[in-house]
Nucleic acid binder design. Structure first.
Lengths: 208, 208, 208, 208
DNA sequence: CCTTAATCGAGACGGTACGTCAGGTCTTGTG
DNA sequence: CACAAGACCTGACGTACCGTCTCGATTAAGG
């Protein structure tokens, strides 16, 4: 049972106008140069109407740009490599969108001291992606392609880190060939003929 | 022929005081909350004396915190895995230093629009690291451990991205076990029994 | 013929609640710090319900605090001095009430540009008071106490100005002794032994 | 021994520009409508440069408009009436200047809660005027014109209140005739043939 | 009983001003 | 020249009101 809304309801057209102005300005002038005054002006909206919805510029940008973080669906092509490429492509698409690339470092910088924000990112973004990866790996394990106990978290961070680094830090997203190479590098690490493990000593002897 | 310096020389004690204040404030309150006013006050220095040395806050922080980017020396332990761990550890140490972790996103955000800065990072940081990795791999190839033509740039970005993501975005640097796992994942991708290549189709058939 | 009221009638309890909140806040925090938001909150009333009754904060305060301006009745003690003291006391009581003293300058400031308001004050407050004074003087003239053609308007303004200055500007209302002194000063100016007149030259020679 | 000034000195041209803009805007649009933003814009000055000099809008206006309060010199024409007219004219000129009339109620409203401000007004404005009046009366007493122990404070407040009321509240300053009448009213109250006193009863008997 | 019309609480809305703060530049006097 | 101090311009910040508006829910009076 939801609390019934009282007072004049918010105008959803403003939400859309603000979001559009935010995304546009991010792409045109970047996070730092984008002031809420500018957003308000472009959206044809009072500045207070933005503050009514978001506590701060960082909140506005984060929630506007990264609304749909993480994998919307778990790929299942019956082949691990194809599944991995699908996962990476989803990430790449998300992080290399112009607005996202322009926003992410600013948001991270503004939220640097905010531990709750980090937890939120972990829960809403990393955890689902890791879960999706785990499911993909589990299916592959049943097909005998890989060992089931691969370190999914680390893999997600490696994949995510690489994509992030290219798209956000270097500003040059991975192309198709590089994506393929990245998949193969990662894939070889989880093949069933051996596996990364705490006991690193026995690892290579078993495979060769 | 250098222009001979005229007038009162700069006080090197100020350089040290400013650097110390910068690093301290970065760790205590973070990049965004750190104003040059605060730095000047803590360093017991006039604000103008900071601007005389650095053009902007981002320049101050970047040059103060990331003085020694990239590998100081190429590791050579006669073993690829050990060499890789040494490279990763150097990266990890650099990026997970409290001041660095606190500074990096702010610097990236402030330099977001500055393409020259990105080129500078590539030249001063990524290129040397990739060169070091290439040398390590080359030695390993001569020992028959790996194929020599591994995509060193991508590998560096994958390793760097992972370390960066953990230290900077998540705020929890890799531990020893995770470093080991990362090395093995990456290592398997460059083993000599096969190699990542443009022609992806033939790759796996050759190895299995 | 009044238009018969349709729809839900106004709740008179709200009028009272708003007035009480207004007076209370005026005394506690003063005119400037008193926002209609605060009044509404304290009165337990919607802000719109205030605007439905008064066009603006200045109107609310003016009509709430100065409901009964001017002399309610013309004093008649058979003695000019006593009558004057009664008139002054009425003024003093009105202007030195805590809410009034707190309100008056704010109201004047907000209505500064409003010529209609000035006319309203003249008609509702000054004119009746001057009329009362004129009547008092007229009676005194018939008793032979004073000249009948005293400049009543100026006298009212002198008396009103003095009371106003003490109560509103200085914040210390006249006490009884000062009221007595003020009466005597004014009284001597209108004694029948001479009179203020346009022809100032002949004035003093006649009296001494 | 004054502390020697350090740092860049304030630009006196800005003081003048701000004062001019303040006075101009006061006359054109009044106290309430005058924002510091407007003042800054018209003066061609940064808003911060205003806040550096004055803590608040009310301080700015008060110190700018009422720089020279009170009588600059004590009039001495050898005649009480002429002296009094001179004193009143000085007051009238000061209070009915367009900028002053526009400013005064706003300043009083904003300073309503500030007891320190009231004390300041008393000390800087009323006290000197009362002292001047006392001196004038004293000289007149030596010439035998009046009693020396007239209640100077009350007289000042009566004169000031009347002038204030006319200029500020009614917006119509006293003209010459009215000033003459006011002087005579007041003068008769302090004539040497009798004087206002605590013991009011004996007052008139002595003179008639 | 049901429509009509106004009031009520609540709160969104476009504005505007506030006073503070940062960034980066400029101008003093002193070494 | 460097340096300490601080003025200066620019422009953003987040808060608080203003007076208007739009909701859903009352509360009469008239059909």
């Amino acid at each position: 049972m939801t609390t019934l809304p009282r007072g004049r309801p918010r105008d959803p057209a403003l939400d859309r106008a603000i979001a559009a102005a935010t995304v546009g300005l991010l792409m045109e002038i970047g996070y730092r140069a984008m002031s809420l005054e500018l957003v308000a002006r472009r959206a044809g909206v009072a500045r207070a109407s933005i503050y009514r919805r978001w506590r701060t510029k960082a909140h506005l940008v984060y929630e506007t740009v990264f609304t749909e973080l993480g994998p919307r669906s778990v790929p299942d092509h019956g082949d691990l490599e194809t599944d991995l490429i699908a996962l990476i492509d989803a990430l790449r698409t998300e992080l290399s969108a112009p607005a996202a690339a322009a926003a992410i470092n600013g948001v991270l910088a503004d939220f640097a001291a905010d531990e709750a924000f980090r937890a939120h990112v972990r829960d809403r973004f990393l955890a689902p992606t890791a879960a999706a990866l785990r499911q993909v790996l589990h299916r592959a394990a049943r097909r005998g392609e890989v060992a089931a106990d691969a370190p999914a978290d680390l893999l997600v961070q490696a994949i995510g880190g690489t994509v992030f680094f290219r798209a956000v830090v270097l500003g040059v997203p991975l192309d198709e060939t590089e994506t393929g190479n990245l998949v193969r590098i990662v894939l070889d690490g989880v093949r069933s003929r051996g596996r990364p493990a705490q006991a690193g000593a026995a690892r290579l002897t078993a495979s060769e």
